[in-house]
C-alpha cells in the first residue's frame, strides 16, 4: 500500500493542459522558408531531399512528402529553410500541405459540420498499419497515454473496425496489406472517415519508389484529415482532429 502511494506521489499530474496551444521544445516541426531569392541555378536543397518533397526557386515544400530530416536546411547556402518546433500543420486536402515563403502555413483544417454533429462528442478510431515502421504506431499509441490523454475529448481507440467511426492509416501500403486494409475499411459501418497519418501514408514517403506497394486503396477513398511528419508528433494529430470535429 505504501509503495503504491509512493508511486502515486511520484506520478503527480502528467497531462498536458492545453493540447491546442502546446509546442514541444526541441521538436523539428513545421518548416519556415525565408523570402530571399535563391542564387542562380542553386538546387542544393532539391538534391539532398530523400523524398522529392522540395522544389527550388521559389522554394516550395510538400509536407505530404517531407520526412523532416533537416537535410535541406543544412544544405541551403542562404540558410533560407528553418524547421521550427511548431506541431500544427495538419490539413484536410493534399494541396493544403504545400508551404512556400508566401504561404508559410498549411491551410487550416476546416470543421466538417457533418462529422462534428456525428462524432464531435464521441469518436472511435481503428488503426491499420500497412507497412508502418512502428514510429507512427507508437505516436498514435501515445495519444492515449497520461500525457496526451485524448480520451478527455471522447476520442478512443477500438479493437475492431466494426466499432470504429474513423480509420487511421499508417505506412506506405505494402502490397501484402492492401487486401487486409480494404477488408478493415469494408467492415466499418457508415458514416466513416479516413485519416492518413505520416509521410508514408500520405505520399509513400521514403518508400514511394518501391515496387512492393499497392496504393490503389487511396485512389478509391480520400482521407478527411492528413497528418504530416515522420512520424508526426501526437500534437499534430490532436490539433487536426479537434479542428476537423469542431471541438473547442
Amino acid at each position: 500500500m505504501l509503495k503504491a502511494l509512493r508511486v502515486l506521489r511520484s506520478q503527480g499530474d502528467q497531462f498536458i493542459g492545453d493540447l491546442r496551444g502546446a509546442v514541444p521544445t526541441g521538436h523539428r516541426g513545421r518548416p519556415v522558408i525565408g523570402a530571399a531569392p535563391c542564387p542562380d541555378g542553386c538546387e542544393a536543397c532539391v538534391r539532398v531531399c530523400p523524398t522529392a518533397a522540395i522544389t527550388a526557386d521559389p522554394v516550395r515544400i510538400d509536407l505530404a512528402r517531407c520526412v523532416f530530416c533537416n537535410e535541406c536546411a543544412l544544405a541551403c547556402p542562404e540558410e533560407k529553410i528553418v524547421f521550427t518546433p511548431e506541431p500544427r500543420m495538419s490539413a484536410d486536402r493534399p494541396e493544403g500541405l504545400v508551404v512556400t515563403a508566401d504561404r508559410p502555413t498549411p491551410t487550416p483544417v476546416a470543421t466538417s459540420e457533418a462529422l462534428r454533429r456525428m462524432f464531435g462528442r464521441s469518436l472511435k478510431l481503428r488503426q491499420v498499419s500497412a507497412g508502418g515502421c512502428n514510429g507512427c504506431e507508437l505516436e498514435l499509441n501515445a495519444l492515449a497515454n497520461v500525457n496526451f490523454d485524448l480520451q478527455r475529448y471522447g476520442i478512443e481507440w477500438v479493437a475492431s473496425p466494426r466499432h470504429a467511426d474513423g480509420l487511421v492509416l499508417t505506412g506506405p501500403i505494402s502490397s501484402h496489406m492492401a487486401e487486409a486494409l480494404q477488408l478493415s475499411w469494408d467492415a466499418m459501418p457508415e458514416p466513416r472517415f479516413l485519416v492518413s497519418f505520416g509521410a508514408c501514408a500520405l505520399s509513400g514517403g521514403l518508400y514511394a519508389d518501391s515496387a512492393e506497394l499497392d496504393r490503389s486503396f487511396l485512389s478509391r477513398f480520400s482521407p478527411s484529415l492528413l497528418v504530416p511528419g515522420c512520424p508526426p508528433h501526437p500534437l499534430t494529430f490532436v490539433q487536426g482532429i479537434l479542428d476537423l470535429l469542431g471541438i473547442r
Binding site: 507497412g131 505494402s174 501484402h176 496489406m177 487486409a180 518508400y207 518501391s210 512492393e212
Partner: peptide, 11 residues
C-alpha cells in the same frame, strides 16, 4: 509474417 514487406533492401 511478410505483410510489412516494403522492399527495404532493394531501395
Amino acid at each position: 509474417l511478410g505483410y510489412q514487406h516494403r522492399g527495404v533492401e532493394a531501395l
